[in-house]
Every structure is written in structure tokens, then in C-alpha cells.
């Protein structure tokens, strides 16, 4: 306790310097997640997540089922409410930076019986640019075709989407994200349930995106391929376990922490927070 004044001096000085540091890099950082907590029915599923993504990297979010990977993405994109914390995209709230952020949802999240063609779906990525009340003109249809071409799907442009295989559907989603021409992409399990050819095609596209300075954050399940595909890893299990370059962070020790059972007490307490009367 005698030392406390010295330590406290640091404590006093540290926050401002940290703030300055953040301000300096904010303009460059595609996403800054600060102290984000998300709760479903008062039960926290993500606790105090802090993360700042580097620009121009392929980043994997890795963690066991129910660890809040999809929730983190949705919370960042205001698709689920945050109980606490803030998220900044390129230094600004999401509302002002929507056009620079692309989202590729899980394939199961849409109705594939919907009467649209692959080309229609891709064009949907450009609606913001086209603007309200205006039809999709030839120019945008061409752009959509080009995006389809980049994922090797141009021959299927006029197919109804339920006549595509799982991998092809995923590629259409990817083409839509390309058409959005965002600077930061979120992808929810882009490799789930796709064939080997599609997986290769997706990886190629991801690398092209990185070449052109885009940042991709993907929820990823396959631990085998993390090293090969991604530059950065975020290990998540309700809490942020570790984050950083794949080589440093994707270690057996960290993985054990991530997958070694949920933090039992944390889980139990989350349960209690959902029902505060129990005390």
C-alpha cells in the first residue's frame, strides 16, 4: 500500500496517453471494439471485448460453438443490441461508415426459395450506390456480372438461387460483398459446407481483397487451415482470450484456454445475472 502513490501516478498518466494513441491510429484502424458486452435476456454472452483490427489483413475469429463469434459480428454491425461498449469503424460510429463495411451472413440465414437470380442477389450489394427509387441500370448489372466473374460464377448469373449448390451460393454471397466495394468485410463462416473448389476460390478472393488493401474478418471453424488462410487470429470464448498475428497467438496453449471447456464459473454466473432475484 505504501507504493501506491507511485503506481497511482502511472495509473493517472496512462489513460490519457492511451487515448492519444488510440486517436492517432483510429483513422487507420478499420474497426475498434471497446469494452463490448452483449447479453441475451440479461444473460451475458460476450464479456468486455476489446479489439482493434489492423488494416489490410485477413483476420479469423476462432472459438468453440456458442462462444459468441457470430454475436460479436452482429453486435458490431448493430444487428443485436450491445449492453455496453462502443464500436468504431474507421474512427466513426457504424451509422456514418455503413458504405465501407460489407457483411456476408451465414448461408442458412436467408430463404433460398426466394424468387431472385444470382445476378439480382449480387446487385443488391450496390443498392446504396444506386440510390432510392432508381432501378438497377445496365451499368450496375454489368458491375454485378463482373463481380460474379471474379468468383467464377458468371455462367450462373440468371439461375434462380435455389438451383445453385451450397458452394455456389456461398460464392454468390461473396460476389455480392465484392460488388459492395467495402473496405472492411465481415464473413460469417464463409467456408461452412462448401466444396474444395469453392474453398480454394474463396481463399483466392480473400487474398485479392487483401492485396487491394481491404480488411476481412471471418468467423472460421476449421482450425487446420487457420495458419494457411489468415494473418491474424482473434480467439474468443465469451471473453477475448487472445488476439494478434497468427504466428504469435495461434498457440496450443491459447487454444487450450479457448476450447478447454467454457470458463465454468463465468457461465454459472451469467446464469445468475439472468435471474438476479436468486439472492
Amino acid at each position: 500500500m505504501n507504493e501506491s502513490p507511485v503506481v497511482d501516478q502511472e495509473a493517472m498518466q496512462e489513460p490519457p496517453t492511451r487515448m492519444v494513441a488510440i486517436d492517432a491510429v483510429e483513422s487507420a484502424s478499420p474497426i475498434l471494439i471497446e469494452d463490448v458486452t452483449v447479453a441475451y435476456h440479461r444473460r451475458p454472452v460476450l464479456w468486455n471485448i476489446d479489439y482493434q483490427a489492423p488494416s489490410g489483413k485477413l483476420i479469423a475469429i476462432v472459438g468453440p460453438n456458442g462462444s459468441g463469434k457470430t454475436t460479436l459480428i452482429k453486435a458490431a454491425l448493430d444487428l443485436v443490441p450491445r449492453a455496453a461498449g462502443q464500436v468504431l469503424f474507421f474512427g466513426e460510429p457504424y451509422g456514418q461508415q455503413r458504405h465501407r463495411v460489407g457483411y456476408v451472413p451465414q448461408r442458412t440465414s436467408v430463404d433460398w426459395d426466394f424468387p431472385v437470380s444470382a445476378l439480382d442477389v449480387v446487385a443488391m450489394g450496390m443498392y446504396r450506390k444506386i440510390g432510392w427509387l432508381r432501378p438497377v441500370s445496365r451499368k450496375y448489372r454489368e458491375a454485378a456480372k463482373q463481380a460474379l466473374d471474379r468468383v467464377g460464377m458468371v455462367d450462373f448469373a440468371n439461375r434462380q438461387i435455389n438451383q445453385l449448390s451450397g458452394g455456389q451460393q456461398q460464392r454468390v454471397f461473396l460476389a455480392r460483398a465484392l460488388a459492395q466495394n467495402a473496405n472492411l468485410y465481415f464473413m460469417d463462416e464463409p467456408f461452412a459446407g462448401v466444396d474444395a473448389a469453392t474453398e480454394r476460390a474463396i481463399v483466392d478472393i480473400l487474398r485479392q481483397l487483401r492485396e487491394s488493401g481491404k480488411t476481412v474478418i471471418a468467423v472460421h471453424h476449421d482450425l487446420q487451415t487457420v495458419h494457411e488462410y489468415f494473418d491474424e487470429v482473434v480467439l474468443l470464448n465469451m471473453r477475448l482470450i487472445a488476439a494478434g498475428p497468427t504466428a504469435d497467438v495461434f498457440t496450443p496453449d491459447n487454444l487450450r484456454k479457448t476450447y478447454g471447456g467454457k470458463l465454468a464459473l463465468l457461465d454459472q454466473l451469467g446464469e445468475k445475472m439472468a435471474q438476479p432475484r436468486s439472492r
Binding site: 451475458p44 464479456w47 476489446d50 471473453r239 464459473l265 463465468l266 454466473l269 438476479p276
Partner: peptide, 17 residues
Amino acid sequence: LVDRGADGIEHVLDPQQ
């Protein structure tokens, strides 16, 4: 992160825990 994490949870600890 410890202080912030503790803030939320300490309140639901019961005597047994």
C-alpha cells in the same frame, strides 16, 4: 481487464460461492 470484469459479477456472488 480484471477490475472491469469483476465489477459486473461480484454482485451476484452468494455466500456459498
